[in-house]
Simulated assay, not measured.
Amino acid sequence: MHGCTQSSAVYDACSGWSRLADDYGFALLFPEQVRSNNSNLCFNWFNPADVRRGSGEVLSIRQMVEHMIERCNVDRSRIFITGLSAGGAMANAMLAAYPDVFSAGTILAGLPYMAASTVPEAFDRMRGYGLPNTEALQAKIRSAFDHKGPWPRISVWHGTGDDTVVPANATAIVEQWRGVHGIGPHPSSTKRRGSRTLHIWKNASGRGVIELHTLSGMAHGAPLDTAAGHEKSGAFFLDVGISSTVETARAWGLGGPKLPTCPTDGIRAAAASALRWTGLRPRS
Rank of each mutant, 00 (worst) to 15 (best):
L259M: 08
F237H: 06
V246H: 13
A204P: 01
T245I: 04
H199V: 01
T245V: 03
I242L: 15
F237A: 06
L212H: 11
G255R: 13
T248F: 06
K258S: 12
G253E: 05
I267L: 10
E247C: 00
T264H: 08
A235V: 12
H186T: 15
L215D: 01
P185A: 12
I242M: 08
A249P: 04
G208Q: 07
G255C: 12
A204S: 14
P185W: 01
R193G: 15
G206S: 12
S216N: 14
A219Y: 10
V246L: 15
L254V: 05
E231L: 06
N203V: 02
T245S: 09
V246Q: 14
K202S: 14
G229M: 10
T248L: 01
R268I: 03
P223R: 06
R196T: 11
T214H: 01
S233Y: 04
G234Q: 01
S243T: 06
L212Y: 11
M218R: 08
S205A: 14
T245A: 09
K191R: 15
R196G: 01
E211R: 11
S205W: 10
S205V: 13
G208W: 03
F236P: 00
A227G: 06
G206C: 09
G206W: 12
W201Y: 14
I210C: 00
H213V: 10
M218D: 06
G194Y: 10
W201L: 05
S195L: 13
T248Q: 03
T261I: 08
T226D: 05
D225N: 15
R192M: 11
H213M: 07
V246E: 14
R192T: 14
V209K: 04
G256I: 07
V209D: 00
K258M: 13
P260T: 02
K232S: 12
